[in-house]
Design a protein around this nucleic acid. Structure first.
Lengths: 235, 235
DNA sequence: TAGTGGTCTAGACCACGCC
DNA sequence: GCGTGGTCTAGACCACTAG
């Protein structure tokens, strides 16, 4: 089946953004320019741009144009309050474990499919800090087969999601989460520098991606005493 | 300024749904019928239906029609895992306090505006249980001025959001949340029937609505030991 | 096969941002 | 004033669902 015209345009523009030919703040070609370039009508050009808007790649401004925006990394998920605001100021990320072959840890709360279990597992873990205070531990597992060369790879701008998008052309399309309040065990307490048994927010995440059957599993442990986890949703 | 044509149609259909002229599972008029009824083209009819889809009122099915669906009550927020699945089986809600005039409690984590503080505050509180086990305490505050007769009003189907929509024509359009893991204080521990100091998930919510400057503030305390809080997001 | 929604064309006029 | 995106018309053909 022929690919839909608007999908072609949409994917072309998306690729340009992912490749960095357009960066955050840049204007995409106007609707009329797209019409001329692709020999389509405005209806079709608009459909392509509307889809990109829904996906969070661009923002449209009446009378100005379509502007490339920072893609929400969290997708309905959570931000550490003060994390995004403090960006570049005082936030740091420390690797507890760089990406390397690992095991499908039973710690993962979501069910791993038969197919996934047969594949090789890649694991990495990070500690997020605000200033000197560790606020979140993040354990991640994924099927390594789809991400050739991820072992030993330096993340683009230190961001795993950005690396997924720009290097592997894989986008996060959704997520499932489970939240629990727990007492910190010894390991968690030491890493977060809190007392054994202090309450921590434990979040289990299964990220869905644009690649079929490729999921990313994360287990997060947060010290919310000073930096609560935030989340917002709008229509 | 003239109301946009598609907005007129959209609002008309929304009102029909809210009034119960169409209930969950019903089919809305087809695009062609809408064209005839409102003297518009399919583009405009489709725009109206697409908006209703975004708002979560309907689902569109190729070759069949537009079907009214259960509106997601949570809007990017959280569901008690097993709550929705257990609906009708074993879930119960107990009023700790029926809607009545109250105070803008300092317990509210979000900032209340000057305008709101001057208005009268209505408060109500509920306890959600699965079987005999209490899993969530819910404290709510809002400006009573917009909700005439809410004091002493019986919620439609026991649902506050449904009452808002069907009785007051107010929709939830978004929310901000803050999540914390805390130790249960005496009051919380007693209500949730857990030990003093047990970890509880504390969620502060500010709901945004379709009515200007009307927000609903909630403070939730969850025992996640047996029923974790769930949340999912797609595209 | 009839009816539905999904894609697309080729126009038009309007509202907004900016120079 | 000019270019941008937002709304709208009046058609066409295609893909899906169901009797």
């Amino acid at each position: 089946m022929e690919e839909k015209r608007y999908k072609q345009v949409q994917n072309f523009l998306k690729l340009q953004i992912q490749k960095g030919h357009y960066v955050v703040g840049d204007f995409l070609p106007s609707e009329n320019e797209l019409c001329a370039t692709f020999s389509i009508t405005r209806t079709t050009a608009r459909k392509a741009l509307e889809e990109l808007t829904k996906e969070g790649f661009i923002e449209r401004m009446h009378g100005k144009g379509s502007i490339v925006r920072e893609r929400r990394q969290s997708l309905g998920l959570l931000n550490v309050k003060g994390f995004s605001e403090a960006v570049g100021k005082d936030v740091s990320t420390v690797f507890l474990q760089h990406p390397q072959p690992g095991l499908w840890n039973p710690e993962i709360h979501f069910t791993i499919s038969e197919t996934e279990i047969k594949e090789s597992c890649v694991h990495f873990a990070r500690l997020r800090c605000v200033g000197e205070i560790p606020v979140m531990i993040e354990y991640n597992w994924l099927v390594g087969t789809y991400l050739e060369g991820i072992v030993g790879f330096e993340f683009i701008d230190g961001s795993f999601f950005k690396t997924l998008s720009q290097h592997y052309r894989i986008e996060i399309t959704g997520s499932e989460q489970e939240l629990r309040a727990e007492n910190a065990n010894k390991n968690i307490a030491i890493l977060l520098k809190i007392q054994l048994g202090s309450p921590v927010l434990h979040i289990s995440v299964k990220f869905h991606t644009s690649k079929n059957n490729f999921y990313i599993y994360s287990e997060l442990y947060c010290n919310t005493a000073n930096y609560p986890i935030g989340n917002s949703y709008h229509l």
